Computed example of a mutant assay.
Amino acid sequence: MELSALKKQLQKQLGDGLVLVVGSGLSCAEGVPGMGPLGRHLVTHIPASLSADDNNLWQEIYPLIETEGLEAALLKHAPTPSLEAAIVQSTGDFIASAETGIISEVFCNAKTLRLTRLIPHLLKPDTGISIVTTNYDRLVELACEEAGLGVDTMFSGHFAARLDPQDSYWGFCRSVKLVGKNVRYKFAPKANVYKPHGSLDWYHREGNPVRYAGSLPLPRLIITPGLNKFRSGYESPFDKHREKANDAIDKARYFLILGYGFNDDHLETHLTPRIKSGVKTVILTYWLSPKARELAIGHKNVIAAEFHQEGGILGTRFIIDGAENFYPDVDYWDLDGFVKGVLSA
Rank of each mutant, 00 (worst) to 15 (best):
P37Q: 04
G39A: 09
L42D: 04
V43K: 01
V43Y: 07
H45Q: 10
H45M: 09
I46R: 09
I46W: 08
P47S: 11
L50D: 09
D53R: 12
D53M: 13
D53A: 15
D53L: 14
D54H: 03
N55T: 15
N56I: 12
L57H: 13
W58M: 10
W58N: 11
E60Y: 03
Y62N: 13
Y62Q: 14
L64N: 10
I65Q: 10
I65L: 12
E66V: 14
L70R: 05
E71F: 05
A73Q: 02
A73H: 03
P79F: 06
P81Q: 05
P81S: 05
P81L: 07
L83K: 01
E84K: 02
E84I: 05
A86H: 07
A86V: 09
A86G: 09
V88M: 06
V88E: 04
S90L: 09
T91C: 08
T91Y: 01
T91V: 06
T91P: 04
D93C: 12
F94M: 09
F94E: 07
I95G: 06
I95R: 01
A96W: 11
S97F: 12
S97R: 14
S97Y: 11
A98F: 02
T100R: 11
T100H: 11
G101V: 00
I102L: 05
I103W: 03
S104M: 08
V106Y: 01
C108D: 15
K111Q: 06
K111W: 01
K111C: 02
K111R: 09
T112S: 09
R114Y: 13
L118W: 00
K124L: 15
K124S: 15
D126L: 13
D126V: 10
G128R: 01
S130N: 12
I131D: 01
I131E: 02
V132S: 08
T134A: 08
N135K: 02
D137C: 02
L139I: 01
V140P: 01
V140C: 05
C144N: 02
C144L: 08
E145Q: 13
A147P: 01
G148I: 03
G150R: 12
V151R: 06
V151Q: 06
D152Y: 04
T153S: 13
T153R: 11
S156C: 15
L163S: 02
L163H: 05
L163A: 05
